[in-house]
Simulated assay, not measured.
Amino acid sequence: MLKERVVEKVCNAVHREVTLELACNENDITGYESASMMKSCDSCSQCGVKTESGYHWERCVFYGRAL
């Protein structure tokens, strides 16, 4: 089951608070959650994550972090 949540964090790349939408897979039987995946950010066009060819989440300062 896909579990979604919204997190607000201060981003050093754009120097203000941003709203991140994250999702993770949750196993209904064990309750185990996978690592959170970035779905969207309200400022990703200002820091270089969003380009003409799509989203490059590996450029995000929150990529790979537990939020």
Rank of each mutant, 00 (worst) to 15 (best):
Y55H: 13
S40R: 01
E4S: 09
C60I: 00
I29V: 13
G48D: 11
A35R: 14
T19V: 13
A66G: 11
Q46Y: 13
C11N: 02
E8R: 01
E8A: 01
C44S: 09
E4Y: 15
T30R: 02
M38D: 05
G31L: 04
L2F: 10
R59M: 10
T51M: 12
G54C: 06
E58M: 12
M1Q: 06
D28Y: 14
E26A: 06
V7M: 05
R16S: 01
Q46R: 14
K39S: 04
S53I: 08
G54T: 04
A13Q: 15
K50F: 08
R65E: 15
I29D: 15
C47V: 07
S43L: 07
C41H: 01
H15A: 10
S36D: 11
H56S: 14
L2E: 10
V6R: 11
K50M: 12
K50I: 14
C44D: 11
E52Y: 07
V7Q: 02
E4H: 13
G64W: 11
E21A: 09
C44T: 09
K3Y: 03
K9D: 02
C60M: 00
S43M: 08
C11D: 03
T19Q: 13
S43A: 12
S40P: 03
T19D: 09
T19W: 07
M37K: 13
T51G: 09
T19A: 07
V18N: 00
G48S: 08
D42H: 03
D42N: 11
E58L: 04
A13G: 04
C44P: 02
A35D: 08
S53V: 06
S34M: 04
K3S: 12
R65V: 13
L67S: 09
D42I: 01
R16A: 00
A13R: 10
D28R: 08
E33M: 10
V6H: 03
V18M: 00
V6K: 13
Y63W: 14
K39C: 05
L20K: 00
G64E: 11
E8M: 01
D28W: 14
S34W: 04
M38H: 12
K9T: 03
S43C: 11
A66T: 13
V7E: 12
N12D: 13
G31N: 07
R65L: 14
V14D: 01
N12K: 08
L67I: 14
N27C: 08
A66Q: 11
V61C: 10
E33Q: 08
N25H: 09
W57E: 02
E8Q: 02
E4I: 02
R59L: 15
V14C: 11
T30W: 00
K3H: 12
Y55N: 15
S45D: 15
L22F: 01
V61T: 10
A23Y: 11
C24R: 10
V61P: 04
A23F: 02
V7W: 03
A35P: 04
K3V: 10
R5Q: 06
K39A: 02
K39T: 03
A23K: 15
L67C: 09
R16E: 01
K39L: 06
L22R: 00
V61L: 05
L22V: 09
V14K: 02
E52K: 04
E52A: 12
E26L: 07
V10Q: 13
L67Y: 15
M38I: 05
L2T: 13
G64H: 11
S45C: 06
V6A: 06
S53T: 08
V10I: 05
D28I: 02
Q46T: 07
V10Y: 12
